[in-house]
Design a protein around this nucleic acid. Structure first.
Lengths: 342, 342
DNA sequence: TTGAAAGCGCTAACAG
DNA sequence: CTGTTAGCGCTTTCAA
């Protein structure tokens, strides 16, 4: 490995000058600078980031801790964070928590390796997360804790839109399939569904917790868990909704003619834009959640954050950074049929 | 941040002794050692990994370069690699190549940060990958290059099994949906399909390249790209196969009664084990690719590899590490019908 | 504008 | 068994 010193010697200058020529060009005479940069290029110099980090105290890395690398929901978030980092010259150290709540230990183990940590949809107890926030630059994604920098997608507001969409289509009995209960956000979503239903004079049935897999949706489509009155279902995961769609059809229930299905998230691979007589329709009616943007924002906030907990603003505690979702109408929802197929 | 020196002073010993007490306990007197470890614990000492890395020349990190973080195929591979690393006390630096072929530059930019690099399904030209292998510890996953350490899943052999399964069911016209052509493996898969078909007196039609998305499968199900004789289709991606399944059914074509569908990979979220009168059947007939194991193996090989290209063994070049796939029969394939539905 | 020197926090010879 | 010393490769005062 060619070191700074090698280039400095070749250029007939000191390490200090060579270093400056590369990191603070304006402090070096044009001729010298050029000679050094050319030589650095020719000799294939790669400044040792470890040595630099030791001196500067900054590694240029960000820890991204996810509950799972196999859950495709997190892929776009990671991709967004990574892209933001790449643009800023940093890089991502990604770790998956083996078991729920494990994320704190994981983050701790990465402490010295990174400048800041992003916890994505962590399932650890509030106080442990807060304790972590005291000791490092921390950003939390998809969960809200007062006093901690949070970036969240406003899916509670989004499911409100979904419910409005369904009640406008005449549905009065709505089923909601919810996720594992660690997420405070899912609680908010359920509350939002209920509020939305109430104003339209509709009622809600909730089934939870359900893992976000196609197979589970398939089963629900076949072993209908709701009352026969339910004519529209909102699932918190696209995979569930897709499974539901297939399961219902396997059982001979037409979607959306007999049952409408909608999903809270939106996975690219499942998007299913289908041209039908010129118009483009999504396979599933769903909420477009700005996952990539979520990751980008989290990375940006983390890079710019100070260490320690976020202090209160002039008018009270600083709230989370919130991103809005958008309703994507698709072919899986339609007007309520008078003869529900439950 | 509490440093080694702080603990050493508190314990009344030199940094050297403190260091030894932590990393080579057997070299230190029991009493001293205990005092130091207790103090280190109490004071919350976290050895600075950067300083350690600077001296030892090893960062303890492995670069994992993937073509995409949103493609769920790579999630399990990353998870496997990460788990293996975690068990070895290392960690993963994950980067996604923005554009095809970009992976070399990415890997270069991570050079000093990691001890070795794993390129997952890289799309860069052979010679660039080889050049990289000359200069760093490199492992390539899901692609074979002579002279470079490779870990691959034997999907060519696997599709042979799929084709045998289909010809045994009476299918004589088989469609294959292939991926973007950068992958030499897909070429081998196509060859394997053709070989398998030939021995059974069947013919193959290939459609490629096709992106691995549900939507694409949906379109293919509706705008049938094969001749009407084709009664069974093998898709290189579960998403495609799933889309095909839905698309065909939307068009009123029964699966598997009229058309059989199978997939080369196997995504957990899409697995769809469904109990039918006690028996468990997968939704899709597919190949179980040991993705997680692929990642684990790659990480293990990378950790143990020497720098530079792999040298020839006693009887010729060292081949790739190969993992076998397994056929998972599901409900999407069945006996050929006399009245194909194309 | 440049160089000499100190030091980031750790580990490992080498003496004692 | 323990302390002293010399760096790992870089950045940055401080002088020249």
């Amino acid at each position: 490995m060619v070191r700074l010193e090698d280039v400095a010697r070749a250029a007939g200058v000191s390490k200090a000058t060579a270093s400056r020529a590369l990191s603070r060009p304006d402090l070096v005479a044009a001729g010298t600078r050029e000679r050094i940069t050319r030589l650095a290029e020719e000799m294939g110099l790669r400044l040792n980031p470890t040595a630099r980090a030791l001196y500067t105290g900054r590694t240029g890395a960000l820890a991204l801790v996810v509950p799972s690398l196999t859950n495709p929901y997190f892929g776009p978030i990671l991709a967004g964070a990574q892209r933001e980092l790449a643009e800023r010259g940093g890089h991502a150290l990604i770790a998956a928590a083996e078991s729920a709540g494990d994320e704190i230990d994981l983050a701790q183990s990465l402490f010295g390796h990174v400048d800041a940590t992003v916890l994505i949809a962590p399932r650890a107890p509030d106080d442990r997360i807060r304790a972590l926030a005291e000791r490092t630059r921390l950003v939390v994604v998809d969960r809200y804790l007062e006093g901690v920098r949070c970036v969240i997608a406003d899916t509670p507001e989004g499911v409100g839109q979904l419910v409005a969409h369904l009640t406008a289509l005449g549905h009065r009995h709505i089923g909601y399939v919810g996720g594992p209960g660690e997420s405070s956000l899912d609680g908010q979503r359920i509350a939002s569904v209920q509020r939305g239903a109430e104003v339209a004079g509709a009622v809600v049935e909730v089934v939870a917790p359900v893992p976000p897999e196609l197979d589970t949706g398939l089963r629900l489509g076949i072993d209908w868990p709701f009352s026969p009155d339910v004519s529209a279902v909102v699932a918190y995961s696209s995979y569930l909704a897709l499974g539901l769609l297939i399961g219902l059809r396997e059982r001979g229930v037409a979607v959306p003619e007999q049952i409408s299905v909608a999903a809270v998230d939106h996975l690219a691979a499942v998007e299913g834009q289908l041209g039908v007589d010129g118009a483009s329709h999504a396979l599933l009616t769903c909420l477009r959640v700005p996952l990539e943007q979520l990751g980008r924002t989290a990375a940006a906030v983390a890079e710019e954050a100070e260490a320690g907990p976020v202090e209160a603003g002039p008018v009270g505690p600083v709230g989370p950074t919130t991103l809005l979702t958008a309703l994507v109408p698709g072919r899986s929802t339609g007007p309520r049929n008078r003869h529900p197929g439950g």
